[in-house]
Computed example of a mutant assay.
Amino acid sequence: MAHHSEHRIILVSDGTGETAAQMTRAAMVQFSDRHVFFTRYKNVRTADQIEAICEDAATHKDLVVYTLVSPELRAYLANLAREKAIPNIDLLGPLLVRLASYFGYEPKSIAGLLHDVNERYFERIDAMEYTIAHDDGRDLSGLDKADLVILGISRTSKTPLSMYLSHHGWKVANIPLIQGYQIPKEVFEADQRKVVGLTIDPENLATIRRARLERLGHDQGADYADPENVNQEIEYANEIFARNRRWPVFNVTGKALEETSAEIMKLMESRRLAPGQSPEGAAPGPSGSCVPKSNMLPANGASAPTKKTRSGKKKKPGSKSKKR
């Protein structure tokens, strides 16, 4: 093979090509004295695309590294590479064959599955980072990006509920209701269909607060856990929810996080407001029949190159070819 100043490695994948790129670059660390540049062809899923790529690679006998889940496409590329004397490496094929033998059944051979998994993973990470940044009213900017805005007085499970939902890919902002303080105007600028309230039984809340004071080593008789003060805070929150009847209110008394989360997700999904859903033109306003009554309190609350055909016309990548 003739040597030239720079070597080219062509990466071919039926997905994003990230697997081929990462593995090849990891191996190239051992050949750091060589100047190499990469060409990546993504979403390669037809014989026409492979033929065009091989014609491109044959010019300088560039190395082709490929990750294709389809056994037919792998075989077609390997045969073309052999015919045109193109050096090539099948990164995925041997592993799939060995795994099929080990598990006793054939692989799914569906392209792009890893990319889908990675996308969901990074969406969850993004949701968790957003939720942490918007915990307890810490950051009121960007509420328009929230999938859910939770309001409630102290110890109504706002933070644990928010974090639990974020692990399911929800961007959640939670804001405390504090007696004597106005609700931030940013709450009213957000999509009102995504705002929910939390409430709790006064006796249950007083018990939770006393337990917290005990863990912190504070006086259990402080105003924070005083039954009268607790009642006043709950009444204050209920008055706010009554004035904003578009906000559904969930009672968390005696409920596990999973139960309350399921109720909220069910409601938002019925409104087509869950992450990944597209609202069907519903205007902000009373939820009406969308609200499951049993769940809530009543109303207050680089592409492959083109290949020329025999007629001289260009054929687009991805167009169907005759069976070979």
Rank of each mutant, 00 (worst) to 15 (best):
H4F: 02
I9H: 07
A20I: 00
M23Q: 14
M28P: 02
M28T: 04
V29R: 15
Q30H: 10
R34T: 09
R34K: 12
Y41E: 03
V44D: 10
R45T: 09
A47T: 10
E51Q: 13
I53T: 04
C54H: 05
A58M: 03
H60N: 14
D62Y: 08
V64T: 03
L68V: 00
L68N: 01
V69T: 04
S70D: 08
L77K: 05
N88W: 03
L92I: 01
G93Q: 02
V97H: 11
L99V: 04
F103D: 13
S109K: 13
L114E: 14
H115S: 15
R120L: 08
I125R: 15
D126G: 10
A127T: 01
Y130I: 00
Y130C: 02
T131A: 07
D136A: 03
G137W: 14
G137Y: 12
R138S: 13
S141K: 12
L143Y: 03
L151I: 01
S154F: 06
R155K: 04
T159Q: 12
P160S: 07
S166N: 08
S166A: 13
H167F: 13
G169K: 02
V172Q: 08
I175C: 09
I175K: 05
I178A: 08
Q179T: 11
Q179C: 11
I183T: 11
E186A: 09
F188A: 05
E189Q: 13
E189N: 10
D201F: 00
L205A: 06
R209F: 01
L216T: 01
G217W: 07
Q220N: 10
Y224C: 09
A225Y: 07
E228G: 15
E233Y: 01
E233G: 02
E239C: 09
I240K: 14
F241L: 00
A242P: 07
R246M: 14
V249P: 00
V252E: 11
K255M: 13
E258N: 10
L267F: 10
L267D: 08
R271Q: 12
R272H: 14
A274C: 08
G276A: 06
Q277M: 12
A282I: 11
A283S: 14
P284Y: 00
P298L: 15
S303T: 09
A304W: 05
K307D: 06
K307L: 13
K308G: 09
R310P: 01
S311Q: 14
K315E: 15
K316M: 13
P317A: 10
P317H: 11
P317C: 10
